[in-house]
Amino acid sequence: MPRLKIRNIAAFFILETKDWLKYKYEVTAWIVQVVIGAVTYSYVGRNLTLQVSEALSQYGGDFLAFLIVGLAFNDFIVASMNAPRSIINPWNLEWLLTIPASLSEAIIGSVWFRYTLSLFQVAAYLGFASLSGVDFSINLPAVIVVLALGMVSMFGFGLISAGIQVITKRWDPVIWIFNSLGWLLSGVWFPPELLPSFLRPLSGLIPQTYILKMLRLAVITGSSLPGMLDSLLRLAALSLIVLPAGFLFFRFGIETSKRHGTLGYY
């Protein structure tokens, strides 16, 4: 693994921040979306009558807490997956490979920017939920470990996706699967235990399922890592497979495009 320069990562972080701030409508829309989302979900969650199922009991039985944590952290998780793809756009990729900064530095700088945005969103969602009466018992070390492991596994999928897309230029099955099925199967809106039995095994193949489960336990009930050992081990195993595979796919995609001379193609 080549040495990473903080200076280069910081340069990309500054660039992404400045670039994003230029899109004033997007910035405004994002702020509004976060505030409205936090307020709306808190109100809806508190005022809906829901049957407390056994699936929710492990999370303290409060559906609002369950929902808010899922929505708050899902963006954080997905940011890892989207970061590699954002760098491989044909406008910049060819150019990035001529300057003395590695793609890793570019991706980390970009994802750091997205995490920063997501952190604000997490704070807003949890803050408004607290004001609505939700009790959180946050085990911060467990949250950090779960997020770190989650980022690694989702990053691996992001690299696989980017490696495929840099060759095909358009089609990418990884993101399609995560976008179309991930929300349903991973438990963003409701516990995956409530899924029909034929879908539950698929739920176990998606790292988001374990990440969201462990985050909810760590944030709502204050569970420590030993208390979620089963999910932790499954996520670690997935990360061990997906991350190296992701690097291989990504490198294969870049090398193939360099051989074909298609780095700058749309």
Binding site: K18, D19, K22, W91, W95
Partner: peptide, 8 residues
């Protein structure tokens, strides 16, 4: 144009 951030 390549490699320039267009809105910067």
């Amino acid at each position: 144009d390549r490699g320039f951030y267009r809105r910067l």
